[in-house]
């Protein structure tokens, strides 16, 4: 039987999972490409929170020493390593997100829509037409 301390100690991870799955749900269930990007961002942020929470020390403080560098050994500092990884990941994340948005802009220009269903329909129609032309060229009936 898990005790209350165990539940409180793990509740954060479960809540991150809930957020992460909300993002995944948006990516899978919604057809609008911009909304998919927003869902990916939610997922990404939830992963960031999970990472940061791994570096947290109870009763600790931010990993910045006093300016005079006279460090009190009794002060606990949180782990700086996840902070570094996630800090750069956030900036890389926005750069790659804008790449995705740029792709959406190009898709909109090519297909006149950003709904996944409509794009798929246009694509299948194109394939049908191509097959028909190909079939006639081969001499058979389409």
């Amino acid at each position: 039987m898990p005790d209350i301390e165990y539940i409180l100690g793990h509740m954060n991870y479960w809540l991150f999972t809930v957020l992460m799955m909300t993002g995944l749900y948006i990516v899978v269930a919604k057809g609008n490409l911009i909304k998919k990007i927003v869902g990916l961002n939610l997922f990404q942020t939830a992963v960031f929170m999970f990472y940061i929470s791994l570096g947290k020390v109870t009763g600790g403080t931010a990993p910045i020493f006093p300016v005079d560098m006279e460090i009190d050994p009794s002060v606990a500092y949180s782990n700086p390593l996840p902070h570094v990884l996630i800090l750069t990941a956030i900036v890389v994340g926005i750069a790659t997100t804008s790449l995705g948005l740029a792709l959406i802009v190009r898709i909109r220009e090519e297909y006149e829509t950003i709904e996944e269903d409509e794009i798929l329909k246009i694509e299948t129609d194109l394939v049908h037409v191509e097959n028909k032309i190909l079939g006639e060229a081969m001499g058979g009936r389409a």
Partner: peptide, 9 residues
């Protein structure tokens, strides 16, 4: 969560 740099970013 003590990650002030990350929060800033």
């Amino acid at each position: 969560l003590d990650a002030v740099d990350v929060a800033f970013t």
